[in-house]
Amino acid sequence: MSKRHLLALFDSFDEAGEAILELRKAKFKGFDTDHDMIIKSPIEHPEFERVLGPKPVHVQWFPLFGSLVGCTFLFILVSGAQANFFEQLKGGKPIVPIPINLVITYALFMLSGVFFTVLGLFVCAGLPARRVPLYTSRVLDDQIGVLVKADEATLPAIKAIFTKHKAVEFQEEAGK
């Protein structure tokens, strides 16, 4: 059976949340509550997002990796550059002054960390993203949208649950 999208718009987080909880309990066939349901909201609301079940975030590993790689790279680059440039001898300092190199190593520690954080955001959040079907600007303004992807047969049942929890508007994908 073909799958179709349905977007329901709510006026408050609590109504949307209760609708989602009920959907998760209902266990429709061909409807995976972990992957087929997306919430869209104008603000972030971590407590509310818990109704979707555990969704781990992995962004934080990117900067850890990036920072370590970045500072190692820069330390080797700088020390190597100095060691191959003996003409630039400074009186009173050795040709490879380690404490001094640590200062700029620290700067690149942060620079590459920041770059990798943004990379992590793009990778994990899937940005830049194409519009998913049934996009409405209301979800960035003042409504909470719940987008589900389900078998055509189950859609009316889902819709009934949404209506029960005071969904104010529905958008449906046209049938194929």
Partner: peptide, 21 residues
């Protein structure tokens, strides 16, 4: 805006990334 749509996936990762930054 790079296709930002305010989905839960966007917000979740955004929150952690912004905190890290």
């Amino acid at each position: 805006a790079m296709g930002w749509q305010g989905t839960d996936r966007h917000w979740r990762n955004f929150r952690v990334a912004y905190l890290t930054l």
